[in-house]
Amino acid sequence: MAERPVFMPQLEGDLLVRTCMVSFVWSPGLAMVQKQKSIRSLHEEAGKQLNINAVLEISTKSEDHLGVELSAFSLKYSPVGKQDDYFLESIFQASKVFENGGPYIDIRRMPPSQAKQDTRLTESGQLVGFRSAGVDWPLIPKTAFYDWLYINIIHTTQEYGERLKEYEGFTDIEFNPKKSVNCQAHSAALYVALNSRGLLNEALSSRDEFINVLQQFSTGDTQKSSSNRELF
């Protein structure tokens, strides 16, 4: 047995994202088929334990094409007027500021797997914050910068927003809250909650507004928009 969180957007009340740990049968092994067995088991148990049926796995292991597209390893940001595009995961890694260096902007051009393994990310001391488009982001609230980055990028594609509304919960089979902080499934749930409540434009207008909106509510963590704005 294993446990993974299911993130459920809340459309009313003082909670934006409800996070519930669900126990399920884990299929060991690194093969895609094993990961997908685990995902199916997780979603079946989510239906039984949480009484929800429409659950989307967001990762490269998802059996739903939308879930793969919305993975940080697949999702891309294309700056307006430029031919370049960057993977969300690479932008996130390139935005990190450490006590002895960073942000290492060149990382944004790397494939996600290479970006995560860049040795500078582990040899520059403690992480102290993030810097994106000249704006510094603090480490608290814990997931604020990652959520802001993820939500900004999916907000540029209207189709994603409409399709995400169809789901009651989101998962990421690779995310273990005991080992990691940021999760794309949480970001997707937060997007649905903000969008459904009419708070999205306000939240995405600036760093301070985004943090203010999060602090007005609870995101369920163990804690005026322009889609043409430069993110990095």
Rank of each mutant, 00 (worst) to 15 (best):
L15K: 11
K142S: 09
E123Q: 15
T143M: 12
G47R: 13
N182W: 00
S196L: 04
K37Y: 07
P111C: 06
Y86R: 12
Q158F: 14
L50T: 06
I153G: 03
E89F: 03
S59A: 12
A94H: 05
K179H: 10
L214Y: 02
I153C: 05
L75W: 06
Q36C: 07
Q158E: 15
E63T: 10
F98P: 01
L75C: 07
V80A: 11
T60L: 14
P138M: 12
D84S: 13
L50F: 08
A193V: 10
L190D: 12
H155N: 14
S27V: 04
G161T: 12
F210T: 00
K178H: 14
F87T: 05
F98H: 13
L11R: 15
K48S: 15
W26Q: 10
W148G: 00
F92P: 12
A133C: 01
E57V: 12
V80W: 09
P138E: 11
I105R: 09
L139H: 00
Y191M: 06
K224S: 14
Q10G: 08
S225H: 09
R207Y: 03
P177R: 03
K96N: 07
K178Y: 05
K82V: 02
A193Q: 06
P111R: 13
K165H: 14
E159R: 13
T60H: 10
F175Q: 08
L190W: 04
V6K: 05
I140T: 13
F175L: 02
Y86K: 01
G29K: 11
G129K: 09
N195P: 03
G129P: 02
S113K: 09
S124C: 01
G81D: 11
S27P: 03
N176D: 15
S59R: 06
A94S: 15
F7Q: 05
E57G: 12
L199N: 04
F175M: 07
T122Y: 14
V6E: 13
S23D: 06
K179T: 06
D118C: 10
Q223I: 03
Y167G: 12
I91A: 02
R229Y: 00
K96F: 04
D64R: 15
E99H: 04
V68I: 15
A54N: 13
V80L: 08
L30E: 14
E166K: 15
A94G: 10
S187C: 03
W148E: 06
H43F: 03
G102Y: 12
F73N: 14
F170E: 02
C183S: 08
E230A: 02
R108C: 11
